[in-house]
Nucleic acid binder design. Structure first.
Length: 410
RNA sequence: GGGGGAGUACCCAAGUGGCCAAAGGGGGCAGACUGUAAAUCUGUUAGCUCAGCUUUCGAUGGUUCGAAUCCGUCCUCCCCCA
């Protein structure tokens, strides 16, 4: 542990948003192995890039010799965090939550070393679900001032739109998590996205009051674009870590196409490249910054999907957009001879391979000149494909400028 | 529990008997320009067998030649009072 203080690393890379006690936390992280935790609520069956920032932090921390606890919110998920949300969350069934928890576990174990207790994975359902209401109120509830809670930033938007008592309790539950982890594993530090600030403070205060011991909290910047919007959104919704929900190719392409202004930030937050390299790549201008985007896309894809998938995605992108070899694995689908014969009409085929959600959309696309077959623009909405369109039993369809889809007939 | 208000397409939001598949904005998609970027401009954005038809304005049942718009019931949410 002769490395730099991880606190400085996190700060330099731009993760830090708020810290409860900056100097103390820095000293602590520099002097001993600290057990810390980050919670993940199982709101979907895969983590997405928003979560990934937190995972990156955990990796940095673990590399620096600290012990991460990944907390999966099997208990808090039953309530739903109202922080920053404008609408009430849909209540999820217990089955869904369990299913999502397992998916999270699987994904997290790819990024952190859980062997020999170097990192822990716990589920707060283990202690939250069997709580006795009155006991909980007496032990935890007494320490919370409703007056103060109401002034918390995280409830602000909900005080205008409505907030149920169920969700109002979320803060207490998360605070109790911290206390439980403190007691069980001596966790002294809770990390989280900046939207978790109020919830984290709740836990820090609770431990200080109940145990009379110091506890700390620290939040990280959310992944936003330079325009301030949440990043990691695609037309299909979030950018998922699950390759079945967002393919490595799509994933790679997302980062390849990111705004110039966001390149440097993403390199720092989402890759392990040394900061000198981040600085160098991030300061490239105009066309040159495309090189930085390629590095970014490759590196992020590598961390999440592995080197092999990253190379494939890179090769496919090169083949489609550059001058690379044509035999790379480009995205596409395989159909049978019969399906091809039955869908010779271009719109039918587009619909079959799910490149368009409806045939009306297909007509519009063609009328606007957005569909290409083997690099030739399709002009008529009743265009019919022939066998001679098949080159090597396949044809390349392009939708718009960037969506490539190779159809192979078997 | 009493009183008031609201539920409209992916989101916000106009529309209060026919001219409404429904203004406007956001977002999405496509075209132009580019650097597989951003900004900008243009078009488009319920479905289908597309100059025609079908389904949509919280749910359901009515009134009417005709309803997102009127009436009844129900559901959900918000505000004020208790």
């Amino acid at each position: 542990m002769n490395k730099r203080n991880v606190f400085d690393v996190l700060k330099e890379r731009g993760y830090l948003a708020q810290v409860t006690h900056e100097d103390e936390v820095r000293d602590l992280l520099g002097s001993e192995s600290v057990t810390f935790y980050i919670g993940f609520d199982p709101t979907a069956d895969s983590l997405h890039v928003g979560h990934f920032i937190q995972v990156m932090v955990m990796m940095h921390m673990q590399q620096a010799g600290h012990r991460p606890i990944a907390l999966i919110g099997g208990g808090t998920g039953m309530v739903g965090d109202p922080s920053g949300k404008t609408d009430m969350r849909k209540m999820m069934t217990k089955e869904t939550i369990d299913h999502n928890c397992r998916a999270f576990q699987k994904q997290l174990s790819r990024f952190l070393d859980f062997s020999e207790g170097q990192a822990l994975l716990v589920n707060n359902g283990d202690w939250l679900l069997d709580l006795n209401y009155v006991e909980f109120l007496r032990e935890v509830g007494v320490h919370f001032s409703v007056n103060r809670m109401l002034t918390a930033e995280c409830f602000k938007s909900r005080l205008e739109k409505g907030l149920s008592f169920l969700e109002f309790n979320y803060m207490l539950m998360q605070s109790y998590d911290f206390l439980a982890l403190y007691r069980k594993y001596q966790a002294k530090l809770q990390l989280g996205g900046d939207d978790q600030w109020s919830n984290i403070l709740g836990g820090v205060d609770l431990i200080r009051r109940v145990e009379g011991s110091p506890a700390y909290g620290m939040t990280f910047n959310l992944l936003t674009t330079s325009a301030g919007k949440k990043m990691g959104k695609t037309e299909a919704g979030a950018l998922w870590l699950d390759p079945d929900k967002t393919s490595p190719y799509e994933f790679y392409q997302y980062w390849r196409n990111i705004d110039d202004d966001d390149v440097k930030k993403c390199l720092a937050l989402l890759t392990f490249l040394p900061m000198e390299e981040v600085e160098r790549l991030g300061s490239l201008k105009d066309e040159k910054i495309n090189d930085a985007k390629k590095v970014l896309a490759y590196e992020v894809t590598k961390v999440i999907h592995g080197e092999e998938e990253a190379k494939k995605a890179e090769a496919a992108s090169q083949a489609l957009f550059g001058s690379g070899g044509a035999d790379a694995e480009v995205p596409g689908s395989t159909i049978t001879e019969k399906e091809f014969q039955d869908h010779r009409n271009i719109i039918d085929l587009l619909h079959l391979i799910k490149l368009i959600p409806s045939k009306g959309e297909g007509r519009r696309l063609i009328q606007q000149g957005g569909i290409y077959v083997n690099d030739e623009r399709i002009e008529a909405i009743d265009h019919t494909l022939t066998d001679s369109d098949l080159k090597d039993r396949s044809l390349m369809i392009r939708k718009g400028k960037k969506v490539y889809h190779k159809v192979t007939v078997e």
